[in-house]
Computed example of a mutant assay.
Amino acid sequence: MDERKEIDSCSCSIIHQDIIDKVKDHIPQEELLYDLSDLFKVFGDTTRIKILCALFQAEMCVCDIAALLNMTQSAISHQLRVLKQARIVKYRKDGKVVYYSLDDEHIKSIFNQGLEHISEKK
C-alpha cells in the first residue's frame, strides 16, 4: 500500500503547544514567504529554465539565446524581463548589444539543488 495514503490525517486530538511554539519561532515572516513563493514561481516555466541553462554556460545576448532555443527574440526578451524583475539575471550593455548573465551564484545553486532533488527520485 502507498505510504502517503496511510498518513493522511492524525488520529489524535491533542495539541502539542510546546512543538507549535518552537516551530512558530522559526517560520519566516509572511512577507518573506510571499517573496520566496514568487521566486519559485519564476522557476516554473520551461523556457525560463532553458534560458538559465544557457546562461550557466556563458553570458549571452537576446539574439544568441533566441537562436539557441529556436524562438523569437520577442519571446526571449519577455522571459528575460521576468527573470530580471525577479533579480535572477542581470544585463550589461556593450554598444548596441545587451548581454545577459546570472545575477549571482545563488541562482545556480538553487537550480542544482532542484535538479539533484528530482534526479534522485527517478
Rank of each mutant, 00 (worst) to 15 (best):
K96R: 10
Q85T: 15
Y100W: 11
I110F: 10
V82R: 15
G114Y: 07
L83I: 07
H78C: 13
D103F: 15
A86V: 13
R92P: 00
R92M: 09
V82G: 05
Q79H: 15
R92A: 07
V97A: 02
K84N: 13
V97F: 00
I88V: 15
H106V: 05
H78S: 15
Y99D: 00
L80I: 15
Y91C: 08
L80T: 13
Y100M: 02
I110T: 06
R92S: 11
Q85H: 13
D94S: 05
V97E: 03
I107W: 09
I76L: 13
R81C: 12
K96G: 04
I118Q: 02
G95M: 08
F111S: 03
L83W: 07
F111P: 00
S101P: 01
G114I: 08
Y100L: 02
R81E: 14
E116L: 06
G95C: 07
K96V: 06
N112F: 02
L102R: 05
S109F: 04
Q113H: 03
G95N: 09
G95A: 08
D94Y: 03
K90T: 11
S109D: 03
D94K: 05
R92L: 06
N112M: 07
I118F: 08
E105S: 14
L102P: 00
L115W: 09
Y99T: 01
L83Q: 06
D94F: 04
S109Y: 05
I110K: 04
V97I: 11
I110E: 01
I107C: 04
D104A: 03
S101D: 10
G114V: 04
K93D: 04
L102D: 07
L80W: 14
Q79G: 10
R87N: 15
I107S: 06
K108P: 00
K90R: 06
I88C: 10
I76M: 12
D104T: 08
Q79V: 11
H117W: 03
G95Y: 06
H117F: 08
S119E: 06
V82T: 15
I107N: 05
L83Y: 09
Q113I: 06
S101A: 12
Y99I: 02
E105R: 11
L80D: 11
R87K: 15
E116I: 04
E105Q: 14
L102G: 05
S109E: 07
G114T: 04
I88W: 14
V89A: 09
I110C: 03
K90H: 03
S77R: 15
E105I: 13
I118N: 03
S77F: 14
K108F: 02
G95S: 08
G114M: 12
I107K: 10
V82A: 13
R81I: 12
L115M: 12
I88R: 12
I76Y: 15
S101R: 08
S77L: 13
Y91D: 09
I88M: 15
H117N: 01
K108Q: 12
S119Q: 09
V97Q: 02
Q79I: 11
I110Q: 02
D104K: 05
G95W: 10
A86D: 14
E116Y: 04
D94I: 09
L102S: 05
Y100N: 03
R92V: 06
I88D: 10
R92H: 10
H117I: 00
V89F: 09
F111I: 13
I110P: 00
K84L: 13
I76Q: 13
Y99C: 01
Y91H: 09
E105W: 09
V97M: 01
V98F: 00
K96S: 08
L83N: 08
D104Q: 03
V97D: 01
K84F: 11
